[in-house]
């Protein structure tokens, strides 16, 4: 059938488009001497990979720092975003539109618009060049996603269950941990995945607020890329993709789609 063939072609084109930019990275990471017009490297080598995992190159350290910052940012965002999401999802109140708009704003304002001013504040607070400073800065673009996803989750949550638990004698903590949390946990996980990815990919905020001292993977990656070490750059780039891939494989795969629906809806 013609429609079938068209569909297969379109699917192949899409798959090819998605995978293509990753292929040269994979080859470069194993190449020694790969110059135009060679289609494949003259020599294959694991040199770039052994350099990347060598402690002196600092790549693994950066990987740990990047992951630590992303995890801490996610945790903080969850602690702050969960209550806010509850307020927005469960209640109707005056000024709600304005509050929603304010919480949404950082998703639409690029980091470069605020980072110069933020740098001035953080400098006086002694936060520039520190991991806590970078985590706080990452909170800005991360929080909107957390709050809005949680708001959508809570708008489908029935507080009646909590009331019942409390009337049966549960403490507030018990109510939260045994009733509320299990109910919102799937949504929270998707929001957390999102928060993690936004922090994980940050470049500009880390560069400005980390002041070079907080050396996350994208900074290290750019440092080698701008020095023309395509082999090392590619090995680091692939290492940089790996955790996201793992997270994706570990969490239910539908998760991203669902959380995106919540983000895409963006309804207070």
């Amino acid at each position: 059938m013609r429609a079938d063939r068209m569909r297969t072609l379109a699917a192949l084109a899409l798959a090819g488009f998605l995978i293509l930019p990753i292929l040269p990275l994979a080859i470069w990471s194993l190449a020694h001497g790969w110059r135009f017009p060679d289609l494949v490297p003259q020599t294959w080598t694991l040199k770039a990979w052994s350099l990347a995992v060598d402690a002196r190159s600092g790549v693994l350290h950066s990987l740990a720092v990047t992951a630590g910052i992303a995890l801490a940012t996610t945790l903080l965002a969850a602690l702050i975003g969960l209550p806010a999401g509850r307020a927005l999802g469960l209640y109707r109140f005056r000024g709600k539109g304005l509050v929603t708009l304010l919480l949404l704003a950082p998703a639409f304002l690029p980091g470069i618009a605020i980072v110069f001013g933020l740098h001035g504040v953080f400098l006086r607070l002694g936060l520039v060049g520190t991991v806590p400073g970078v985590i706080l800065a990452h909170l800005i673009p991360v929080l909107p996603y957390m709050v809005l996803v949680m708001a959508a989750v809570f708008s489908r949550f029935d507080p009646e269950f909590e009331a019942q638990a409390r009337s049966l004698g549960a403490t507030p903590w018990q109510t939260f941990s045994r009733v509320t949390l299990p109910a919102v946990l799937p949504g929270l996980m998707t929001a957390a995945l999102f928060a993690f990815l936004v922090s994980w990919s940050q470049y500009l905020l880390t560069l400005a607020i980390g002041g070079g001292r907080v050396q996350t993977l994208p900074l290290l990656l750019f440092s080698f890329s701008s020095a023309g070490r395509n082999d090392l750059t590619s090995a680091i780039a692939l290492l940089y993709i790996l955790p996201g891939l793992l997270v994706l494989l570990v969490t239910a795969r539908q998760v991203t789609g669902r959380s995106l629906a919540l983000v895409g809806g963006l309804r207070p």
Binding site: L18, L20, P21, I22, L23, P24, L25, W28, L197, W200, S201, Y203, P218, L221, F222, S225, N230, T233, S234, A237, Y240, I241, G244, L245, V247, L248, R253, T256, G257
Partner: peptide, 18 residues
């Protein structure tokens, strides 16, 4: 979905090499 997890700078370098 995988593409969603790949940082922009990695994609940019991939496009450059491509």
């Amino acid at each position: 979905q995988l593409n969603l997890t790949i940082p922009h700078i990695v994609g940019a370098i991939g496009i450059l090499y491509l």
